[in-house]
């Protein structure tokens, strides 16, 4: 959590400098891109655990390959939903 705060802290001045120049530092498309990026990050974190568990299950029983694959990519739906935001801003 602490690392996230420092990251945000370093981003904030950039946003502010943009505001001083008149326009927003991040226009709508940029913000949408950020949304997709963050969603992908979240999906990646979620897949880390599921993927590890799925590999374990497949190692024990090869028939579980299909099920393991589906469960592993399930968090990927997050990114697809986040893509909706991009289309809304275009």
């Amino acid at each position: 959590m602490f690392e996230l705060a420092t990251v945000l802290g370093s981003v904030a001045p950039v946003l502010q400098s943009g505001a001083e120049a008149g326009g927003p530092a991040l226009d709508a498309t940029g913000a949408a891109a950020l949304a997709v990026g963050l969603a992908a990050l979240g999906a990646g974190i979620a897949e880390r655990g599921i993927g590890a568990a799925a590999m374990g299950a497949i190692a024990e029983n090869e028939d579980l390959f299909g099920r393991g694959l589906i469960l592993t990519v399930l968090p990927e739906t997050l990114v697809i939903l986040a893509l909706v935001v991009v289309f809304l801003t275009l």
Binding site: I50, A52, A53, A54, M55, G56, A57, A59, E60, N61
Partner: peptide, 9 residues
Amino acid sequence: EYVTARVRA
């Protein structure tokens, strides 16, 4: 995750 999945199997 990996170890518990294998162990449970």
